[in-house]
Amino acid sequence: MPLGYYLALSAVMFVIGIVGVLVRRNALIVFMSLELMFNAANLLFVTFAAYYGTIIGQISVFFVMTVAAAEVAVGLALMVAIFRTKHSIDVDQMSSLKG
């Protein structure tokens, strides 16, 4: 199995994630697109760990997941707090910094 297949799959996932962030207004789905991009990166880590025959890539994935979990916890809490004041999770509604 050529290495390139995994890399290409990872790239596709990553770009779909980016497009998701760009086109969706629902903050929750934007968040999920972010998770998808994390996954693309993780897949890259694991692929190269197998390619080089080391364990470091897997360790990195472990840390990424932990930090992602923490990020999700804080991010969702933020979203709840914003919803309380704005009564919406439309990211386009959060434009008070307009120049």
């Binding site: 980016i18 962030v21 760009l22 990211v91 307009k98 120049g99």
Partner: peptide, 17 residues
């Protein structure tokens, strides 16, 4: 120039991309 600052996060991300 300040009109460039739309306040829409998604526009900023688009520019970054």
């Amino acid at each position: 120039l300040r009109r460039i600052q739309t306040g829409y996060v998604r526009t900023y991300v688009l520019v970054v991309l």
